[in-house]
């Protein structure tokens, strides 16, 4: 018995039509491949209770290096540290990303969508990632002091 008197039963043909509609929209407008992973990454960040860094200059600067290749430079700041990031083209349409963070031995993840690439800063605080596709990038900084909160930067388009 139906819980509500207004519920109307569906016949087999109704069910078949609805089934075809579900398949139709799966072809026509499927969820992006990154949807589930993006949600899970966002939930992971939320659970980290990370401090949100801010852009030092409030916007990314676009500079020109002597070799005339476009270099994008941006600095993030939080209560305890700074992360300076330079992006330059390394051929094949990908980027080389150099960064400097306050202190050595600091673990930093570069997130491109749901994909993460971790690097550890050297004694001078230097980090580098090669062959990074262009896109919306953010960084997660894991301080050495386990008592300190991780720091999450805003998303920047490189």
């Amino acid at each position: 018995m139906s819980q509500y008197p207004h519920e109307q039963p569906m016949d087999e043909q109704d069910a078949a039509v609805l089934d075809s509609i579900a398949h139709l929209y799966d072809s026509l407008d499927p969820p992006p491949a990154s949807l589930n992973a993006g949600v899970l990454v966002a939930l992971t960040w939320a659970e980290l209770d990370a401090e949100l860094a801010t852009l030092l200059d409030d916007e990314a600067r676009v500079l020109r290096s002597p070799e005339t290749e476009v270099v994008e430079s941006v600095t993030f700041t939080s209560s305890a540290m700074q992360l300076m990031v330079n992006a330059s083209t390394d051929g094949a349409g990908t980027l080389r990303i150099d960064a400097w963070v306050t202190g050595g031995g600091v673990e930093v993840a570069l997130y491109l969508g749901a994909e993460s690439r971790w690097a550890v800063s050297d004694a001078n605080g230097r980090l580098a990632w090669r062959k990074v596709p262009r896109g919306r990038i953010r960084f997660l900084i894991q301080p050495m002091d386990p008592e300190s909160k991780p720091v999450l930067t805003p998303v920047v388009e490189f």
Binding site: S20, I21, L24, S27, L28
Partner: peptide, 21 residues
């Protein structure tokens, strides 16, 4: 807007159904 229907729907039956939907 769902994009270029002819490209997205290779299947003739689906194109017909979309025409009605």
């Amino acid at each position: 807007g769902v994009g270029p229907v002819d490209l997205l729907l290779q299947d003739e039956t689906q194109r017909m159904l979309w025409d009605h939907v």
